[in-house]
């Protein structure tokens, strides 16, 4: 089970308490009545759906009830960090991103926990 850090509860909580809520930082147009159908389509339907680093909205539905944002890798599913709603996208270091990359091709998805020296 994924453990997700809730920035409001200030601790890691089991994923069963959470609900994913799509891409983060989607800004609602302030002049909704004036925009063209094409621009509305872009705002309403079109998402980046990137393979790699993604910024997502999550809700701690069965917890504090709050929406917050998360930086995550869409292939390895690992979280880099979570932050409160309304806060800007965090600056992420190369090390932070490298830490959540999926395993390279040809390597087992899960490295054995026991190191070679320990195995009998």
């Amino acid at each position: 089970m994924l453990l997700i850090h809730c920035p409001y509860c200030e601790e890691d909580r089991p994923e069963l308490e959470f609900h994913g809520a799509g891409e983060a930082h989607m800004e609602r147009p302030k002049n909704m009545g004036d925009i063209s159908p094409e621009d509305f389509e872009k705002f309403f339907f079109i998402r980046e759906n990137r393979k790699g680093l993604v910024f997502e909205r999550w809700r701690h539905l069965h917890g504090c009830g709050r929406f917050f944002n998360a930086a995550r890798h869409s292939v390895s599913d690992k979280f880099i960090c979570t932050y409160k709603a309304g806060e800007p996208k965090p600056e992420l270091s190369d090390e932070q991103i490298a830490a959540v990359l999926p395993p390279a091709k040809g390597t087992p998805a899960n490295e054995p926990i026991v190191s070679k020296g320990d195995a009998k």
Binding site: C9, R13, L16, E17, H62, G63, C64, G65
Partner: peptide, 10 residues
């Protein structure tokens, strides 16, 4: 105390 889940119920 905490809001959480028990099986399928909140």
């Amino acid at each position: 105390c905490s809001r959480t889940v028990y099986a399928k119920a909140e």
